[in-house]
């Protein structure tokens, strides 16, 4: 049996396990809350993480995962973890690799022939690519944060100059911002 088919059959258990491991990267009190609270508005981190992981797994199990869709699906969870100071950059994105171990454990009884091992290796290749996508998203998010900070500082300097009478004419829309 193709491993994608096997994994598709077991995907609920796999995504649940993945979600558990991802939430366990938070301090234990937080992790408990992320798992228990089901209301998406009371627990946006938990629900976003769950939705992202489920969506990503669905896409990875397709023969030809759509890269743009993977970016779209993975973005919300990385966007959150980028700004959460409890994580280092590697911790923010490294959860992607958890999936490899979970899948290996899940298939330990089936991985007895070369064909299955090759298929597993191909799936793990997809996970590696996913990690690179995660890294790209992380950098995009970081860049946005830095731009927001830069704009904030530019605004402050502009206002200080303006107060000191050093700005000749105030443009209608203020200083030019980084877009």
């Amino acid at each position: 049996m193709e491993i994608e088919k096997l994994l598709t059959e077991r995907k609920t258990a796999i995504s649940r396990k993945w979600f558990e491991q991802v939430t366990d990267t938070y301090p234990s009190d937080t992790s408990k809350f992320l798992k228990q609270q089901k209301d998406p508005f009371a627990n946006p981190v938990g629900s976003t993480t769950m939705n992202s992981l489920q969506g990503v797994l669905d896409e990875l199990l397709k023969k030809e995962p759509d890269k743009e869709k993977l970016v779209f699906l993975l973005d919300p969870v990385i966007r959150i973890r980028t700004v959460q100071a409890v994580f280092t950059p590697s911790q923010a994105v490294g959860f992607v690799f958890f999936l490899k171990q979970i899948v290996r454990e899940n298939l330990k009884n089936e991985c007895r022939d070369l064909q299955t091992l090759t298929a597993l290796s191909a799936f793990e290749g997809k996970v590696d690519e996913l990690a690179l996508i995660a890294f790209n998203i992380y950098m995009e998010c970081t860049k946005t944060i830095l731009e927001l900070k830069a704009n904030h500082e530019k605004g402050k300097v502009y206002r200080a100059f303006s107060r000191a009478g050093l700005v000749e004419e105030i443009p209608d829309d203020g200083p030019e911002l980084i877009r």
Binding site: F41, V83, L148
Partner: peptide, 21 residues
């Protein structure tokens, strides 16, 4: 402020999540 942007983004997440909805 600007220097605590990560904190602000974290603190504003639940509100932003409802706006997104």
């Amino acid at each position: 402020a600007g220097e605590d942007m990560e904190l602000r983004m974290c603190g504003g997440l639940p509100r932003a999540n409802a706006v997104k909805h």
